[in-house]
Simulated assay, not measured.
Amino acid sequence: MRLGLDHVHRVTPRTVLQWPHCRQRMHAKQSINGLRYFAHDPGGPECSYGHKTMEHRLLKLQLATAIRAAGHQADLEVRGPDGRWRADVLATTAGGRRIAWEAQLSSITVDDARRRTAALGADSVGVCWVFEEGQRSWMHQVPAIRVRPPAERAASWRVITGLFRWAGRHWDPVEADLEDFVAWALDGRVVPRGFDPPRRYWVGGWTAPQYLAQSIARTT
């Protein structure tokens, strides 16, 4: 018998399901917009199809929507020259500025995040790494934000980690709507917290240029 999503979504007892290509367990889910789909169970081994999960696609579409809402061009799955890099979503402003938005929901090493960030930078492409849950070992080393999907249909995605304000002697974390953050980043109103030379304290995340200048002046 062929089962549909209505037969397995939030039913008790739970129906045992497996992906045909990797044999891992999966479960039925429903997005905030009512879209039903299947996803891998958490805690399983890395799957070669991990980057193609529905959660990954939904986040990429959300980022592309935010870029376009800000008045800029958004292209998905863009490859760089000679395949040196690939952007989940590549934003291009009217002035030609480019920022890659990486929806990173699977595991990645610090070295890989740095390498991919450097490859983009070598072609004058900025990058913002985006993740949803937990802590990431690389989040302190590259421009990254943590986002939270809306709990209700009318609510908005939020940036809950990775955006900072300089308070005179220390950094204060702040939150913002994801659409606002994307617009700020593309307009240059927030920039990566990079330092030259690198400091010993945390340099991940984003802040306003004036806050970055004030912090550098304070610590030099």
Score class of each variant (00 low, 15 high):
His40Ile: 12
Ser107His: 08
Val159Ser: 02
Arg116Met: 07
Arg165Glu: 15
Glu152Tyr: 10
Ala213Arg: 13
Gly80Cys: 03
Trp129Tyr: 12
Phe131Arg: 00
Ile160Ser: 11
Gln18Asn: 11
Val127Gln: 06
Arg136Asn: 09
Ser215Thr: 01
Ala87Val: 05
Phe131Tyr: 15
Leu76Met: 14
Pro81Gln: 04
Leu163Pro: 02
Ala208Val: 08
Asp177Asn: 12
Arg68Gln: 12
Leu163Ala: 08
Thr92Arg: 08
Ala100Lys: 01
Glu133Ser: 07
Pro150Phe: 07
Gly50Gln: 05
Ala155Ser: 14
Asp6Glu: 15
Thr117Arg: 12
Gly126Asn: 13
Pro198Leu: 07
Ala217Trp: 12
Arg23Val: 07
Ala185Leu: 08
Ser137Thr: 12
Ala70Met: 11
Gly204Lys: 02
Thr219Gly: 06
Gly95Gln: 09
Glu46Trp: 03
Gly188Tyr: 07
Ala144Pro: 04
Met1Lys: 13
Arg68His: 04
Asp123Val: 05
Leu212His: 13
Glu77Asp: 15
Trp157Gly: 03
Thr53Glu: 14
Gly188Trp: 12
Pro20Ser: 11
Arg153Asp: 10
Ala74Lys: 03
Thr15Met: 07
Ala70Leu: 10
Val159Met: 02
Phe181Pro: 00
Val191Asn: 04
Leu212Tyr: 13
Leu61Phe: 08
Glu152Lys: 09
Val147Arg: 04
Asp187Glu: 15
Arg79Gly: 14
Arg79Cys: 14
Gln18His: 14
Thr220Leu: 12
Glu55Tyr: 04
Val182Asn: 10
Ile216Arg: 14
Glu152Asp: 14
Asp187His: 15
Thr53Lys: 00
Phe38Ser: 04
Arg148Lys: 11
Gln135Arg: 13
Asp112Phe: 07
Leu5Thr: 10
Ala94Met: 04
Ile108Asn: 02
Trp166Gln: 03
Arg98Ile: 12
Leu186Ser: 12
Phe181Ile: 01
Ile32Trp: 11
His51Ile: 02
Ala213Pro: 01
His7Pro: 08
Leu76Asn: 06
Thr92Lys: 02
Val203Lys: 04
His27Leu: 13
Gln135Gly: 04
Thr220Ala: 04
Arg146Cys: 10
Gly194Ala: 12
Val89Tyr: 04
His72Gly: 05
Gly44Ile: 13
Met1Pro: 14
Arg169Tyr: 10
Asp111Asn: 08
Pro13Gly: 05
Gln210Trp: 15
Val191Asp: 02
Trp85Leu: 02
Thr117Cys: 14
Lys52Tyr: 09
Gly134His: 03
Thr117Trp: 09
Pro197Asn: 08
Met26Trp: 00
Asp75His: 01
Gly168Cys: 07
Val78Ser: 03
Leu58Gly: 07
Ala151Lys: 04
Glu77Ser: 03
Glu102Leu: 01
Ala119Gln: 11
Ala183Lys: 15
Trp166Phe: 11
